[in-house]
Design a binder for these strands. Structure first.
Ligand SMILES: [Zn+2]
Ligand SMILES: [Zn+2]
Ligand SMILES: [Zn+2]
Ligand SMILES: [Zn+2]
Lengths: 149, 149
DNA sequence: AGGCTTATTGATACTGAGTTACAATTTCTT
DNA sequence: AAGAAATTGTAACTCAGTATCAATAAGCCT
């Protein structure tokens, strides 16, 4: 099966659900898939406005659950009232190492988590869908700052 | 060193910080440590009211960051606008397997996560503080429901 | 024990993310 | 081209969490 673009995948998803493909949805998806980083609704809205793309925040809020349902994006973490997302379509699954002080993020993946998923599935009888591992620490720069303080 | 109760630990923490030990704080902590499960602010508040313990929600909200700072409790997850916490003082660190449908939670721990922490520490130069692993799946009961649907 | 300083409390007002209601508009099917 | 139904933007709303502030109380010092 040939690789399908995010837009194609989403069009099919919408059709399946009896939902409609609109210019607003297209604009938001294009914007999301042009940002190759973690993003939040407010940042997305602001960057769209700056480009003259006028969609309401309500439409963004309404679209996000659909993109999650369609496995195009996923929630990565929630910090201080902000929910952050990232693309997952076409990306290897990965986890996040975050600096508690400066909020810097490192991404990593580890095959042991797949093994663990398998074991949990057998042990508890769950069908495993995904996992989210956040490791929290202090980066080298922030450690240096702390030591000199 | 002998085992110290949560209250003792917290009294020392407060003293260290030049803060005061009040009946309200004591009541909240006792309530929290009598609940051996994940809890949220609203549930805590309601169960205290039912027992005739009158403290304001503001005091609960103000206390929680202190208990986290003192390593007595930790945030476990955030779901649909609710933040859930659990005791960590005197408990082994563990992670959570959650059913997406019915929200049931299984706890588990795995020594491989400690190894992973160590490797990440070396690879990225971080001082690792903790990790939070959430595995999301569908429990056997909910799988059965889905199949028959 | 009494007095003083300063932290804490509860009430209330506020903030900000996310949701909802609804009339106007647009998509999609036939 | 017409009509049913979904989607849009606006504005009102919800609700967790925070900030303000006057009244109160903890802890320290004598
Ligand atoms: Zn840092
Ligand atoms: Zn990421
Ligand atoms: Zn279930
Ligand atoms: Zn737990």
């Amino acid at each position: 099966m040939a690789f399908q673009s995010e837009l194609e995948v989403f069009r099919k998803f919408l059709k399946n659900q009896g939902m409609r493909y609109t210019p607003e949805r297209e604009a938001i998806i294009k914007e999301i898939f042009s940002i190759h980083d973690h993003f939040d609704v407010d940042g997305l809205y602001i960057s769209m406005r700056r480009k003259g793309l006028r969609v309401s925040k309500a439409s963004i809020y309404r679209l996000i659950p659909l993109l999650i349902e369609a496995n195009l994006i996923a929630e990565v973490f929630f910090d201080k009232g902000q929910t952050y997302y990232e693309h997952i379509y076409g990306h290897e699954h990965h986890c996040h190492l975050r600096c508690k002080e400066c909020k810097k993020i490192e991404e990593f993946s580890d095959p042991r988590l797949k093994d663990l998923e398998k074991e949990l599935s057998e042990r508890f009888g769950y069908k495993i869908l995904t996992h989210k591992l956040q490791v929290i620490g202090i980066c080298s720069k922030c450690q240096a700052k702390e030591d000199s303080a």
